[in-house]
Design a binder for these strands. Structure first.
Lengths: 253, 253
DNA sequence: AATTTAGTTGAACGTTCGTTGAAATTCAAC
DNA sequence: GTTGAATTTCAACGAACGTTCAACTAAATT
């Protein structure tokens, strides 16, 4: 079923991982760490975790193979390091923006849904389109991880769920009458739309005959926010349960 | 960068592929073909194309390794056969349902958006939740393929785009004033929400503390249709361009 | 200057990879 | 029942896989 000698063997090299606090201060070490992370980010994004070998990565980074194990323990540790590297920066800005939206809406009670969604999505789409090229790879990788049955449930939760909770809580204030399950499913749809956007597979380009470009994330954002805001409102309208039931059941097989 | 001896070597075995028309009538051959396809569908869905070896698949199918090459040429041919196997059935029912919705709306001109979306999504969600277990694997695999930068743009287009065009055309009739780019982006968001749903990563279960279950596709469908219908309407409302611009720009950094 | 430590190197480990060739078997047609 | 093709088996090919080890260099500590 799976490679025997690959992942997590016995103690698996972790023993001689440079200590987190002290190491990384050395200029030489830190430079090679980042070279490896950059290459891994780019290549994992292109062909996924299993589609890229450690040698592909260290080869692209122009460092010795053994350095991957030395710095990150094993291949999976490298993946996690890639995901973690930019996660804190993202979480920080997302959280700050959510705070700002909630603070601005102090007087007139509920914040605007569009503002909440923007606080959640703008930091991502802005970095992917205007940040350093690594960011685009990063989000393509995140898209793959998020959709993966193997990693999606665990890796994403570990690094991103706290701020997602905060986002959902902000939506909850914007739509106080919303049921919990509707709230989470609506978030799920937003997450899916965002995820496919980051993948930039080029399919929408072909399908639309050139009317849309996968890489034009400003156009996406301009449309994603009102699309999802309307979706949230449709699901969470107060009297929604009865009317939704009727509307959908009619079209059933 | 990639394994040398793996995919598409020289002529790559294709030479002795059993002819499509004549073969497959033999009961023995057809049975092993399907055993391999079933195993490949299940395993590819779990760990992706590169995360599963040909030996994993033939081992699970309890057939000889060489039979994979014999029947499908090479590993990629096997993946394509898996995707193709159930695609025709899906396209047939989706297409028929779209026709029915359009026919039913003959008199009162525009069809209801909810009905169009339902015609597009119901055949999928219904098979995934109530079809044979293979269907669930199939859609999880489709989700991975659709999100993959490597396969998403090509494999999905090849097998599914004709009926997607038909879907978009039906939406176009439901929202005659909609701009082309809005139409396609709105479809893209629907596609993303659907894709993440099929992945069933379990993340929403954990995040919602049990309020949502990834596997409860009826709940998803009940919400996906009104969510996306509202999104389509929000994007495609006649005067939408100006108001959207104002609404989004305000929240910018 | 001597000694410890962190970082790097090159080679190798055993295993698994996708694919193939030749022999053996099964099947359909006569 | 023989023939010819389709299918299956078994063993092997060379290449690539993730990881490790001992030797080595550079930096920091004493």
């Amino acid at each position: 079923m799976q490679k025997k000698g690959t992942t997590g063997r016995k103690g698996a090299g972790r023993d001689r991982l440079p200590r987190a606090g002290t190491a990384g201060t050395g200029s030489r070490s830190q430079a090679t760490r980042e070279r490896i992370l950059d290459a891994a980010e780019r290549l994992f994004a292109q062909r996924g975790f299993y589609g890229i070998s450690v040698r592909d990565i260290t080869g692209a980074a122009e460092v010795d193979v053994a350095l991957a194990s030395y710095h990150f323990g094993n291949k999976q540790g490298l993946l996690e390091a890639v995901v973690m590297r930019r996660a804190e920066d993202l979480n920080t800005e997302r959280s700050a923006r959510l705070d700002a939206v909630l603070a601005a809406a102090k007087g007139r009670r509920p914040p605007k849904i569009e503002d909440v969604i923007d606080a959640f999505t703008h930091p991502l789409l802005d970095r992917s389109s205007r940040g350093s090229p690594g960011w685009k790879s990063y989000f393509a990788l995140i898209a793959e991880v998020n959709n993966s049955p193997e990693f999606g449930g665990v890796l994403m939760s570990r690094f991103f769920d706290p701020v997602v909770e905060k986002f959902i809580d902000a939506i909850r204030r914007a739509l106080p009458d919303c049921e919990e399950s509707d709230l989470y499913w609506a978030y799920h749809f937003l997450s899916g739309a965002l995820t496919l956007t980051f993948a930039e597979t080029g399919r929408i380009d072909k399908l639309s005959g050139g009317a849309c470009r996968s890489s034009d994330l400003d156009s996406v954002h301009e449309r994603l926010v009102p699309y999802c805001a309307a979706g949230f409102r449709a699901l969470c309208a107060t009297k929604r349960a009865a009317s939704r039931q009727a509307g959908t059941r009619k079209a059933r097989k």
